[in-house]
């Protein structure tokens, strides 16, 4: 087994961990963290794709590497937005939860009933 494949399998396992955490963990912040773990597993898959395709004296195919850089920045932006939402929710209700029951008891005239 090459080193690339090893890291690829590691990426696959991390995707599994992240997915499990995203689905089962009730706290939004932990969900965001799990999403980041999931994301890093996906990025490792790109890394394997790049490393396997090494040619022309390069250590890897630069195209997937560039894609990962783009995706890391997007994932950070997503994390920042999600965390801002969680904190705002905390400010508004004193809680940070995703459960559907009425949070904070504010005006529910129009929302999810």
């Amino acid at each position: 087994m090459t080193a690339a494949t090893l890291f690829g399998l590691c990426g696959a396992a991390l995707v599994g961990f992240g997915l499990y955490g995203l689905v089962t963990n009730p706290e939004p912040l932990r969900k965001i963290l799990a999403f980041n773990l999931l994301g890093s597993g996906v990025f490792l898959v790109f890394g394997v794709v790049s490393r396997r395709a090494a040619a022309s004296g390069l250590g890897g195919d630069p195209v997937p590497q560039a894609m990962v850089i783009t995706a890391i920045v997007v994932a950070f932006a997503a994390t920042a937005m999600a965390i801002a939402l969680v904190l705002r929710l905390l400010q508004e209700t004193g809680r940070s939860t995703l459960s559907a029951d009425n949070p904070g008891g504010t005006d529910t005239d129009r929302g999810n009933s």
């Binding site: 890093s40 250590g59 990962v68 920045v73 950070f76 994390t79």
Partner: peptide, 24 residues
Amino acid sequence: VRLSAVDVALTEAAIGGGMTGMLM
């Protein structure tokens, strides 16, 4: 780095670990 992607390694350390960690 082990995957010969130093650009990604730098980005991951700076953004993935550093900035995300700070936010969290």
